[in-house]
């Protein structure tokens, strides 16, 4: 079972629609127990990292997610679901995040239109199975005002130019996270979910 973690700040319906379109079933849940029993989890998100963290803590999901990732189980984070993985976010006055990936979440520089909203290209820094069937430089839908700066740049597998190079995809073992919204990025975006589910399934049967 694939669990979509619902912590009140996610566009869970869009994500579950995308998974359904691919012919898979996903459960939307905010129960730590149900999350722990899933085969793969997706943490979507819109809104602010500070709100997301507050909700995750209140629902006792922060620890579940940390443990999940520590166990190396398949994880896909989207937008805020990526940002909360870092140590701290500048949003809301340096809010503390999960600290799974050392690094910071910074505000996009002044002088650019913020939020970074719309379709932008993702340069594939390394070849990775999550990009299978997706051409280098393909466009995805972005919608964010903050961006991640992981201390370990080797985790950045996709990068996008918006005044500065913005980290748009991170991979670390069975953890994959995107700054853009694959569920809003047309057929190319659905491919990201398809690849994740395929990788997650392969992991399960390893």
């Amino acid at each position: 079972m694939i669990a979509i973690v619902d912590y009140g700040a996610g566009n869970v319906r869009s994500v579950s629609n995308a998974i359904a379109k691919l012919g898979h079933q996903a459960t939307v849940t905010s129960e730590p127990g149900e999350v722990a029993n899933a085969k793969a989890i997706i943490v979507p998100g819109v809104g602010s990292a500070a709100d997301a963290m507050a909700n995750l803590r209140a629902l006792k999901l922060a620890e579940s997610i940390k443990q999940w990732i520590a166990e190396g189980r398949p994880f896909l984070g989207v937008c805020i679901g990526l940002q909360i993985l870092l140590t701290v976010s500048e949003e809301g006055g340096w809010c503390e995040c999960l600290g799974i990936i050392p690094g910071r979440v910074r505000r996009l520089p002044r002088g650019l239109k913020v939020p970074h909203m719309g379709w932008n290209q993702v340069k594939q820094k390394v070849s990775h199975p999550v990009f299978d069937g997706i051409p280098d430089g393909a466009s995805f839908y972005f919608l964010h005002s903050y961006y991640v700066e992981p201390a370990d740049r080797s985790l950045v597998i996709g990068e996008t130019e918006y005044g500065i190079p913005v980290c748009s995809v991170i991979a670390a073992g069975n953890l994959i996270a995107t700054q853009f919204h694959p569920e809003k990025s047309g057929e190319t975006g659905l491919k990201i979910y398809e690849n994740f589910i395929r990788l997650a399934t392969a992991h399960i049967y390893q």
Partner: peptide, 8 residues
């Protein structure tokens, strides 16, 4: 609409 349209 949102079931089959995967753009914003």
């Amino acid at each position: 609409i949102s079931e089959n349209v995967f753009v914003p």
